[in-house]
């Protein structure tokens, strides 16, 4: 199957950051719709896998937004009646503005999180974005030990059962003792991994900034500039 060339992570970072910031600034419905439209298209091109979870999350959030709009902005003429509540133009407008804002931010985040694997993101941190080793290494290490921590967790719970201790994780004390042990075990693991990293000379790596845009990056950045100019000018 043909796959679209992915933009560089920095390009998506710039796009997501700019659109999210503008979504906070703009109050006009039309401006927000102009921002939302290309973001939705990009999400459908690059970040379809797992998108349904984001949409479900946003839809759940919409219910809260609607209640909020009724409570704080229900002014103007009545648009429709919901049971005994008269929903007025102010509430509808506020609901639409905040909902679109939420969709833009969620989709911009999804664009970054769903287009790239965690490994691609941390590689970009190390190899492209000149992130100091002290920041990039913990990200890489977290990805390394995530499956190990998951395995440790199930073993710790199992061992506690074997030793006749409670494992009711809804009980804060039981949960705390399991999580504390998990942290101790992984602190020890992290300590030795840190020693290994030192012995392998990780600190000698010089971070570099290597942003090499491709055609798709130029297209995206141009689109972003057009969006900003259009919404400011009109």
């Amino acid at each position: 199957m043909y796959r679209m060339t992915k933009p560089r992570i920095l390009t998506i970072l710039i796009y997501a950051f700019t659109t999210s910031t503008l979504a906070f600034i703009y109050r006009d419905l039309y401006d927000l719709l102009v921002l939302l439209a290309p973001t939705i298209i990009l999400v459908f091109i690059y970040a379809r896998r797992g998108l349904h979870w984001i949409i479900i999350g946003v839809l759940i959030g919409l219910l809260g937004l609607f209640i909020n709009a009724i409570a704080f902005s229900n002014t103007g003429e009545t648009v429709f009646r919901l049971f005994t509540i008269e929903v007025k133009t102010g509430a509808v407008h506020a609901f639409l503005v905040v909902s679109i804002r939420l969709f833009i931010i969620a989709f911009a985040g999804a664009l970054l999180a769903l287009t790239y694997s965690p490994i691609e993101i941390y590689r970009s941190l190390i190899y492209e974005l000149k992130t100091p080793v002290i920041i990039a290494f913990p990200v890489a290490y977290a990805l390394r030990i995530l499956p190990v921590v998951k395995r440790d967790y199930s073993e710790i719970v199992f061992q506690r059962k074997q030793r006749g201790l409670k494992t009711n994780l809804l009980n804060p004390l039981d949960l705390a003792s399991v999580v504390t042990l998990l942290m101790v075990v992984n602190y020890e693991r992290a300590k030795w991994s840190g020693i290994s990293a030192e012995l392998r000379g990780l600190r000698r790596i010089k971070p570099e900034f290597q942003y090499k845009p491709r055609i798709v990056d130029y297209i995206l950045l141009t689109l972003l500039v057009l969006l900003v100019v259009y919404t400011i000018a009109f």
Binding site: P118, Y122, F137, A140, W192, S193, S196
Partner: peptide, 13 residues
Amino acid sequence: VLLQDPERQLVFP
């Protein structure tokens, strides 16, 4: 250096 637990030597994903 090869550490006692070589698994901990692998620090990248």
